[in-house]
Structures are given as C-alpha cells and as structure tokens.
C-alpha cells in the first residue's frame, strides 16, 4: 500500500511537468511583445529592445523555459507586466475570496445534491424523481451567468435580502462573509448540484439492488437506515470521485461567477490577466488551478486507499 501511495504521488510529477511545459509554450508563442507593453506609449524601438534584453526575452526557448521553471520551483512566479507586482503577491491577495466561494459552494452543493439524488433513487419513477432529474438536466443547460443575474435581480435588487456584489473578509465576521457568498454559491453550485445529484441517484439505484440491501431490509432495518447508512456508504466512492473531478467545473465557473458578483478573487484576476495579456499572471493562475485540481484528486484517491478495503492496487 505504501508503494501505491508513493507511486500515486510520484505520478503527479509528470502531469504537473506537462502542465508547466504547456503553459509556458502557450505563452511563448503568444503574439504581442511584453517589452513593448512595459515600455508604454511613446517608447522608441531602442527602448523596447533594451527592456527586452533586461527581461531576458531575447534568449532561446529552452533556456527561458529552464529559467522559468527554476524560478517557479523556488516559488517565484515572476512579475506582472501591468501592475509590476510579484505574481505570487497578486495571487495571495486573491486566494481568500475564491477559496471561500469554492468551499461554501462545495458544502452547499453536496448538502443539497446528495439528499436530492438519494430521494430520487428511493422514489424512482415518481414525480419527485422526474423533477429532480429534470432539474439536473436544466442545471447543465443554463449558463452560470444567466443564473447569477437572475438571482441577483430577484434576491438583491427586488427583494433586497442579500448584497448584490462584493466580498467581505472572513476576519470581519462570519455573517457578513456568508451574506456576500450566498448568491454566488447558489449560481455557481447549480451545475455542480446537477452533476452530483445525477451521479448519486445512479449509484444509489445500483447499490439498492445489491444483496446486502435486501438482507438489511429482511432484517427489518428502517427505510431511512437503509438509505443513509447502508446504501449511501457504499455509494460514496463514485460520488466523492465526481466531487473531486467536478472541481474543474467549480474553477471554470468561478471565473464567470466572480465577474458577475464582483468578487475580487482569482477568477477575476484570470479574466483581467487574459484580456490584458498579462502573461506571467496567466501562467501563474493556470498553474495554480491545475495544481489544486491535481492535488484534490490525489487526496481523494489516497483517502480511498485508507477507507475502502475493497480497492486493490
């Protein structure tokens, strides 16, 4: 088992290496000259050339990749072309809102979607089941920004129950923090709920047909006990896997949700950086997001090996 864990951890290295090479190459071939941006308006070609040299932009591809990788391994993500601030600083400033949004969305989505899926499976074929499933398809079909605007219009502007935009730091109190995250979390959660509800229902249906469930029923275990103790426990692995893989959905959705609700997080940093072609920042956030994704899924894999004795390596 330790060998498996070690192998599994080592397996993330080539993946991250591919991401790094990909991200670097992507921006290496990018049009536009960072040196020209840095020099600003009214700079002469000589000024631009001088800056290009000082940034090392005139060196060959592999040399630049090596230098870049070395910097990153030391935790230096470079300096933003537009703000002249270290990329690591810019990312650090914006981690809290994004992390908060993701955690709240995750908790909200799981606590809504899993019961939904369980109930749908339990009541298979009924109106409830069909409504849950209809919602699930709908959740995939409506773009997150449409949901966001709709929510903001109804609950913030018309009813004035919740703030329409912004982010309040956790340090300023739990209430204000949560207040700002409710609407974005629902908007961002809609796709995620649809995904988890579907997978929960599907695995639950499968598990409910297993022999041990029938045995439990025969032994007189109550319906609720069967559903939430026996069945859900056994359905947990695929559900948790989907939650992990779905992190990509959350990240992609956060980019849009943060724009709609003016949350100063990594998603908006990404959009701003991409629209302004601030390459060091783009590289930094894409690397970070991929790293998080790989890490979350690694953690989920490793948790299985500890929890589920059926899994063989």
């Amino acid at each position: 088992m330790y060998a498996y864990v070690a192998r599994r951890i080592l397996a993330t290295i080539p993946v991250m290496a591919v991401v790094a090479l990909f991200v670097f190459s992507l921006l290496y071939i990018a049009p536009g000259d960072p040196a020209a941006v840095i020099a600003g308006d009214q700079a002469t070609p000589e000024d631009v050339e001088r800056i290009r040299q000082s940034l090392g932009l005139d060196r060959p591809y592999l040399v630049r990749f090596g230098a870049w990788l070395w910097d990153i391994l030391r935790g230096d993500l470079g300096v933003s072309i537009f703000t002249n601030l270290p990329v690591s600083t810019m990312i650090a400033q914006r981690i809290e809102p994004t992390l908060s949004l993701m955690v709240v969305t995750l908790l909200f989505a799981v606590s809504v979607a899993v019961p939904m899926g369980v109930v749908a499976a339990w009541k298979q074929g009924t109106l409830i089941d069909r409504m849950v499933m209809a919602f699930a398809v709908l959740g995939f079909s409506v773009p997150v920004f449409v949901v966001g605007y709709l929510l903001a219009y109804v609950f913030a502007l018309e009813l004035d129950w919740l703030p329409v935009q912004g982010y309040t730091s956790f340090r300023e109190g739990f209430g204000p923090w949560l207040e700002n995250l409710v609407l974005p979390a629902i908007a961002l959660g809609s796709v995620y709920i649809a995904l988890i509800a579907r997978i929960t229902r599907a695995t639950m249906l499968e598990v409910l047909q297993q022999d041990y469930i029938r045995t439990a029923r025969a032994k007189g275990v109550g319906q609720r006990g069967i559903l939430f103790l026996h069945a859900l426990k056994n359905a947990a692995v695929p559900i948790v896997t989907v939650i992990g893989i779905g992190i990509a959905l959350l990240i992609g959705g956060a980019v849009v949700t943060e724009s709609v609700f003016a949350i100063p997080g990594l998603g908006r940093l990404t959009v701003d950086a991409i629209l302004r072609r601030d390459y060091p920042v783009i590289q930094g956030v894409v690397l970070l997001f991929s790293f998080v994704y790989v890490l979350v899924n690694l953690a989920i894999d490793l948790i299985y090996t500890l929890l589920d004795p059926r899994i063989r390596y």
């Binding site: 599994r8 993946v15 699930a136 796709v191 692995v237 695929p238 896997t241 992609g252 299985y304």
Partner: peptide
C-alpha cells in the same frame, strides 16, 4: 487524478465539462 478511475472500480467516467453529464 491520473488513476482515479483505475483505483475505484465503480467510478463513473470523468465528466466532460459544464454541460457534461454522466449518464
């Protein structure tokens, strides 16, 4: 995540994005 699906026999295929739906 490289071997997520390998490690767990009952795991569904990875979802494709956004509109991506498992069966």
């Amino acid at each position: 995540m490289a071997s997520a699906t390998v490690a767990s026999p009952a795991a569904p295929p990875p979802p494709h994005e956004v509109a991506a739906a498992p069966p």
